[in-house]
Design a protein around this nucleic acid. Structure first.
Lengths: 327, 327
DNA sequence: CTGAAAGCGCTTACAG
DNA sequence: CTGAAAGCGCTTACAG
C-alpha cells in the first residue's frame, strides 16, 4: 500500500537519488521530470517526513507552548504565530501545559525530543527549571509575554499601559480608587501592571487607593469585586485583566449598582467581547496577533543565527468606551 | 554536541541494541541498566524521535485540524482532546486551517506526511475533496461537529437542542418570533438547528415566525439583528450561536430596547461569557470538552482497530437565565 | 543530468 | 541478558 521513494524510482525507471532530486528541486531533465511526476500521481506517493528529517537533521517545526488554550490572548497570539510561520515555510506545533508548570517543563523536553527548530513559550512565569531546560536542549527559545535576562523575550508594555490607565482615571476626577490585580508570581500582570498603575496614581496625593488581589478566574473576580464594593465603595475599580473586569461588572449588577454612574470599571487586554457588552468596557488593547507574528519572525531569525534584540516591547492603546464616568 | 544512541552505547560500554532495549523497557540486567542510566544522565541524551518513528513505522501523534483557534467551542474541544490523549499516551498536534477549506484539505495531507496515527477534524463542512483526501491518506479519521456517511463522526444534538429551544419559546408565550441563523453550507449550525427550531414552532399555528441569516461574526450579527428589530419587531430573537446572540443583545441596546422586557433573546453554545453578562443569556449548553475527550478515545480505538459507532450524538442542556420574558 | 553508495539514528529479529 | 547486522526511507557528496 504505502509507497516509498524506491517504488517511485522503480516505476519511473530512474534511481532513488533522481527522485529525491526531483522532490527537492535539483536538476532533472524535463523528460525524467515527467516520468517521475506521473509515477507520483499514479501512486499517490507521500514522502516520509521522518526519513527526510532524519537525514536533513533539521525540521521546519516550531514548537509553541501555551499555558491554556481557552484564552483570548493565547488564541490570538497563536493565530499570529501560525500565520507568519506559514509564510516563512515553517509549521507550528502547539503544546498545551494547562497552567501546570511541571507540565510546561516536560513540554520543553518533549518538543526538544521532536527536534523542533525552535520554541516559542507563551510564558506566565519563568523558574530556574525553565532556564535549566533551555540550557540543556540547545534549541533557540523565545519568550512571549514575560521577560527574563537569559532568554530572548517579547513583551507587552504592561507598565506603560498601566501607567496610562492610572493617569486616565485621575484625569476623570476619581479619588476613591480600587485596583484589582493578580498574584505577583506573574511578573507581567501581577507586578508590572500594578507598579505602573501605582506610579501614576501616586502622583496625586488627595486620592485614596486600595489594592486587592484575585485570580484570573471570572468567578473569583465576581466574589472579590463584590467584597471590595461593600467594604471600600470605590468610585472606580481598575482591573488587571478584561476577564476580571467582566467579573467586576457582574458584581456591580448583582449589587444593583449602575455602571458607570455608580461605579466605573476598566480592564486590560482588549478582548473582543468587551466591545459588545453593555456598557462597553474602557480598557487597554494589546496587539496579541501582531506580537505572535513578530514572535514567529524572531524565532526564525534566531534559528538562522541572525541578530535580534534581547527584548522587544510591544505597543498598546487605551480604548475609551462607556464604563468610566467623569466625576 | 548532540549525542546519539551510539555515543551512549560507547560510554556505557554496551551495544546500541542494549541501549535501545533499555529505553524501550526490554530485559536488561540491573548492572547494565545502571551504566546506561549514568551515561544518559551525564550526556543529557535525548533520543531522536524521527529515527524512532522511521523504524517503528508509527507515531503516537494525533493530528487535530481546527477551522479557527479563537473560538470558544474549538478551544474547549481541543482541551478535551488534549487531556484525554495525554492519558492514553498520545500527543496532539494542532493544525489551524483558519476557516479556509483549501487549507483544511492541505492540512490533511500535511498531517499524513507526518505520519500521524490518526486525524480528528473539527469540521464545518465536508466536501468531496475531503472525502478524497481521507481515502488517499489511509489513516483513521474522526469528524467532530459534523457528520458524513463515509466517516466516523461525533456530533452535538443540534436538531434536538433547537427543537427544545423552540418548544421553550412557545411555552413562554411568544408569538412573534425571529430566528437568526447562518448559511446552509454548515449542516450542523445552518441546517440542523434551523430545522429543529422550525419543527418545534410549526406545531403552533398562531405564531408568526421569520427566518434570517447572518455570519458567525459578531459585527455582522449586530447589523442583521438591528435590521430585524426594525422591520419585524419580534418579541423574541432566537440566535443560532451565542456570538450571534451577543450581537443581538448589542443591537437591542443600541436601539434602546430592554432585554428581556422589550425583546427576548436566546443563544446556542453555552459560552462562559453568556453567564457573566447582563442580562445573563438563556442558551443551550453543549459539552465541548467532553466531546473532545470522547473524540480522543474514539480515534485511539480506531487506530487499534476496535469497533466504534459510526456516529455518536452528544447531549445538551437548556440553560434558563434572564434573557427571555414570559408573555 | 544521472546513478551507486554511504549514512542519518534508531529498532528488531536472530543468535548466542 | 547481550551483541552484530540488517533495514526503516530518505539525502547527499562523489563519479561519471
Amino acid at each position: 500500500m504505502k509507497k516509498t521513494i524506491s517504488d517511485i524510482a522503480q516505476i519511473a525507471g530512474v534511481a532513488k537519488s533522481t527522485v529525491s532530486r526531483y522532490l527537492n528541486g535539483g536538476s532533472v531533465s524535463d523528460a525524467t521530470k515527467e516520468k517521475i511526476k506521473r509515477a507520483i500521481q499514479e501512486t499517490g506517493y507521500i514522502p516520509n517526513t521522518f526519513a527526510q528529517s532524519l537525514k536533513a537533521k533539521k525540521t521546519n517545526i516550531i514548537g509553541t507552548i501555551v499555558p491554556r488554550l481557552n484564552s483570548y490572548a493565547s488564541s490570538l497570539t497563536l493565530i499570529g504565530i501560525d500565520e507568519q510561520l506559514k509564510e516563512l515555510n515553517y509549521q507550528m506545533l502547539i503544546s498545551n501545559s494547562n497552567q501546570d508548570l511541571e507540565r510546561e517543563i516536560e513540554n520543553i523536553y518533549t518538543l526538544a525530543n521532536q527536534k523542533v527548530a525552535g520554541i516559542i513559550l507563551l510564558a506566565t512565569q519563568i523558574t530556574d527549571q525553565h532556564i535549566e531546560a533551555f540550557r540543556k536542549i540547545d534549541i533557540p527559545v523565545l519568550l512571549v509575554g514575560q521577560q527574563h535576562k537569559e532568554v530572548y523575550s517579547l513583551i507587552h508594555d504592561d507598565y506603560g499601559a498601566a501607567y496610562d490607565i492610572g493617569q486616565y482615571i485621575l484625569a476623570k476626577g476619581h479619588k476613591r480608587i480600587g485596583y484589582l490585580g493578580v498574584g505577583e508570581h506573574d511578573i507581567a500582570v501581577g507586578v508590572k501592571r500594578k507598579q505602573g498603575f501605582k506610579e501614576a496614581v501616586d502622583t496625586k496625593s488627595d486620592c485614596e487607593v486600595k489594592y486587592y488581589e484575585t485570580s484570573f478566574n471570572i468567578a473569583d473576580a465576581i466574589g472579590t469585586a463584590s467584597e471590595i464594593i461593600e467594604e471600600f465603595q470605590p468610585s472606580i475599580l481598575a482591573c488587571a485583566t478584561d476577564n476580571i473586569a467582566l467579573g467586576a461588572l457582574k458584581a456591580a449588577y448583582m449589587r444593583g449598582l449602575r455602571v458607570p454612574e455608580d461605579l466605573s470599571i476598566t480592564g486590560f487586554g482588549g478582548y473582543q467581547v468587551t466591545e459588545v457588552i453593555h456598557p462597553a468596557l474602557t480598557t487597554v488593547k494589546f496587539y496579541y496577533k501582531e506580537v505572535g507574528q513578530r514572535a514567529a519572525r524572531n524565532i526564525v531569525k534566531l534559528i538562522n543565527e541572525e541578530e535580534i534584540e534581547k527584548i522587544s516591547i510591544s505597543k498598546y492603546e487605551i480604548i475609551e468606551r462607556e464604563s468610566v464616568d467623569n466625576i
